[in-house]
Design a protein around this nucleic acid. Structure first.
Length: 735
RNA sequence: AGCGGGGUGGGGUAGCUUGGAAAUCCCAUCAGGCUCAUAACCUGAAGAUCGUUGGUUCAAAUCCAACCCCCGCUACCA
């Protein structure tokens, strides 16, 4: 039996956790610890919310509540989400506890005792108005490198240079705008250079680390370490156990990593043996794994090991499993599902295992990955639902219909034996990958088994056997159910909820967790009665899910009119050539409203995926959007000039599929006057409804997509909204 | 500009650390099968000079160099 301590980076209690936190640290840590428990290792997982630091203070100031209240709120929210997602912490605590404070104090004093700390006086900006020292990032000014006016004290966003706030020109306080003055202040520094040699030797020896983690760390060490301040002039944080430091607090980056140790102690204190933390920190055979995102590497491969080396006697990280980033791109929010990528929100719409599946399948283990709703739906439906879920369901429901119990297993032929072999092979493959922290690969092996299950089921064709040889049919079903059981066991680290359900539905005793990895060899109970199976997962339907999804059938683009000709066979029609990224022909009935000269060169909004139709003998390949009431007509146009061909997707995922005119007519688009801003309301002709809009000016008229009692303001990239070229009353229909 | 990631069949990707018969998986396409299952599953086919140019080598998607493009880092910071 091995001993394993699993640590997951501490989410910051300044907002709800999102897919990035989960895929970067919480989920891999959970999968890893679940796997270790299943194979019988002595494993625990601890972490908690990082409650301190300036951003929380700022949020609190804005809301006019205490920092503690803000931090608590998100800690509670996130703890609940973490639990619902099935992240199986032995302890998920936070850093605002007495225990943490005292452990941090001990560590601090121990380092001081051993001479690894020193005091130095530096000058820092102090804002007289706010009556506080300003962290670098709360000082604004002109960048000394590129002269751009909006640089922050820690970094210039324009040229990207790291800055020292003292170098900024025209420094002013970001919070109140006053000019701060420089004041001397004393701080305590950790003498990191003391540890350079031992850290180098340590990192050199860690050949099992992911290559980018190791080389990045060696690189930093090579560039040289400097003393780092571990105290700050702030009021929200862990007190400094030193006289005359009562107006200062310990800097979060120093204090939060110590949380791993304090959390283990807190876990031990709550158990029957309060010294049990020692077996995870002092027993040198215990391996500690840290799961985090790449921005956190130095804290775990340099600073935390330096602190641990400084106090001595405690295990250094065995592995620092850093993930890259899951980029969220423009997909922070799904308009169609009405759901954002934060976890509490996602959990209201999707089963935890569905979320877990996608986040593992797309985990940024070795390079950045991209979150997209499309991909989410596609992978869920074609992999988890169609391959895994469907196999389990077809095997169970066929058995249920024809036997109602677990059929007994007769003699196995070669194909059956190969299938049984395939089960144990799959288990080994999954275990091999998981022990190397290669989660995608492990999941792949699991899915391969599910696919094999489908192949086996097809090849033995129980629906034929049931009529010709019922005993044989029972045998192949028995083997199929063995595969389901194996999927439950091997899939348990990834899909714990599904696993337990399969296990129970198969009539197995206890739980997968209790049975452990070897549970796949526990025989099925022949004759055990089955309940009527219910599919494990439902398909994710992004388009039918209501909301504004229906509007995503429109492929709207900016179009520039190239030429206008009168229609040869009609009085009211024009034939126009329009550039929508490609030249197309459009026939439209504008003759009563616009002259050819007025139209020529205009920039409009064109529906580009309308089924082409012949209008009086001329083929029209699209349609321009216009608002009209009884006597007036106005054309839709972007409020700012956009290049022809630019998508006007309103934040939805525009389709390419052609739509019929009939389908188009079902949609309700209107002219709306933005009535109020917060919360935004829009008047769509006699009634004001809630709407979604980015920016916007009250009193202005915008094109709105209407759905029952809500509206979405039509917009292109960067929130460029769609307006009208002539005045037209609110409520006019857009066609 | 800096930092980070990447450019592999129509789209999305695996493989690259430890070079070896040209390549994984999902989707889309085409053809077939099955009818137990959530229009699902199974089989087969078509389709890629592995960003460009040089280099190392008996051999390069894989190593080296240069270049060209894309994306994220404007905080829901893992």
């Amino acid at each position: 039996m091995d001993r394993v301590l699993v640590c997951s980076a501490w989410p910051y209690a300044n907002g709800p956790i999102h897919v990035g936190h989960v895929t970067g640290s919480l989920l891999p840590a959970d999968i890893f610890v679940r796997f270790n428990r299943l194979i019988g290792n002595d494993a625990i997982m601890v972490s908690g919310s990082d409650m301190h630091g300036a951003p929380i203070t700022v949020s609190a100031d804005k809301e006019k509540v205490s920092p503690e209240k803000v931090a608590r709120r998100y800690h509670d929210l996130n703890s609940k989400a973490i639990e619902m997602l099935g992240i199986s912490f032995d302890l998920f605590t936070h850093t605002h506890t007495k225990n943490h404070e005292s452990v941090v104090s001990e560590v601090f004093l121990e380092l001081q005792e051993k001479g690894h700390l020193k005091r130095m006086t530096t000058s820092q900006y102090y804002c007289g108005e706010c009556d506080r020292f300003l962290p670098d990032r709360y000082v604004d000014g002109t960048c000394p490198h590129c002269e751009s006016a909006n640089a922050r004290g820690d970094q210039c966003d324009v040229c990207g240079m790291d800055l020292d706030a003292k170098d900024l020109k025209d420094a002013h306080c970001q919070l109140c705008g006053c000019v701060p003055d420089l004041r001397d202040t004393e701080h305590i520094f950790l003498k990191l250079p003391d540890f350079t040699d031992s850290l180098k030797a340590y990192v050199e020896s860690c050949r099992h680390w992911r290559p980018h983690v190791r080389s990045f760390t060696l690189n930093v060490l090579e560039e040289g370490l400097t003393d780092r301040p571990i105290t700050r002039d702030i009021s929200w944080g862990v007190p400094v156990p030193v006289d005359s430091y009562d107006t200062k607090r310990i800097y979060v980056w120093f204090e939060a990593v110590i949380g791993y140790l304090s959390a283990t102690k807190e876990w031990a204190a709550a158990s029957s043996d309060s010294t049990s933390w020692e077996r995870f920190w002092k027993d040198s055979s215990c391996r500690s794994y840290y799961f985090l995102g790449k921005d956190n590497i130095v804290f775990h491969t340099i600073i935390w090991p330096a602190i641990l080396t400084g106090i001595g006697g405690l295990n250094l990280p065995y592995d620092v499993v850093a993930n890259q980033f899951m980029n969220l791109g423009g997909q922070k929010f799904s308009k169609s599902m009405g759901v954002s990528i934060n976890i509490p929100d996602l959990l209201t719409k999707f089963q935890p295992d569905v979320i877990r599946y996608y986040l593992v399948a797309n985990m940024p283990e070795f390079k950045d990955s991209e979150f997209s709703w499309d991909d989410f739906a596609q992978r869920t439906n074609s992999e988890l639902v169609a391959t895994y879920g469907n196999f389990v369901h077809r095997a169970m429901s066929f058995t249920y219909k024809n036997f109602h119990t677990i059929p007994s297993r007769g003699p196995l032929d070669d194909r059956d034996k190969a299938a049984m072999k395939r089960i144990s092979d799959a288990g080994e493959a999954v275990a091999r990958s998981l022990s190397k922290c290669e989660f995608r690969e492990a999941l792949r092996s699991l899915m391969d088994l599910a696919q094999f299950g489908n192949q086996y089921f097809d090849s033995v064709a129980p629906w034929t056997l049931v009529r010709s040889d019922k005993a044989r049919c029972g045998t192949v079903l028995h083997v199929s159910l063995e595969m389901c059981k194996a999927l439950a066991v091997f899939g348990c680290p990834f899909l714990p909820f599904s696993s337990e359900r399969i296990w129970t539905d198969l009539g197995m005793e206890g739980s997968v967790e209790a049975a452990g990895w070897k549970g796949f060899e526990v025989p099925l109970k022949e004759g055990a009665s089955l309940k009527k199976p219910v599919p494990l997962y439902a398909k994710v339907d992004m388009s039918a899910a209501g909301g504004f999804a229906r509007y995503s059938m429109l492929n709207l683009r900016v179009g520039k009119i190239l030429s206008v000709e009168p229609h040869p066979n009609a009085d009211k029609l024009y034939v126009m050539k329009v550039d929508v990224g490609r030249p197309i022909t459009i026939v439209s009935g504008l003759k009563d409203y616009y002259t050819a000269e007025e139209l020529s060169g205009k920039t409009l909004i064109i529906l580009t995926n309308l089924e082409p139709a012949k209008l009086r003998g001329v083929k029209s390949e699209g349609m321009l959007l216009a608002a009209e009431d009884a006597e007036r007509l106005a054309l839709l146009t972007p409020e700012k000039d956009l290049a022809p061909g630019t998508q006007i997707s309103s934040g939805l995922e525009a389709a390419d599929k052609q739509i019929s005119y009939k389908e188009f007519q079902k949609l309700d688009m209107r002219v709306g006057v933005l009535a109020e801003l917060s919360p935004p309301k829009i008047d769509i002709g006699g009634k004001a409804v809630g709407c979604e809009v980015a920016g916007g000016v009250a009193g202005e008229k915008y094109a709105a997509l209407v759905l029952d009692d809500s509206a979405l303001v039509m917009h292109g990239p960067d929130g460029v909204k769609i307006v009208f070229d002539r005045d037209i009353p609110a409520g006019a229909r857009i066609r």
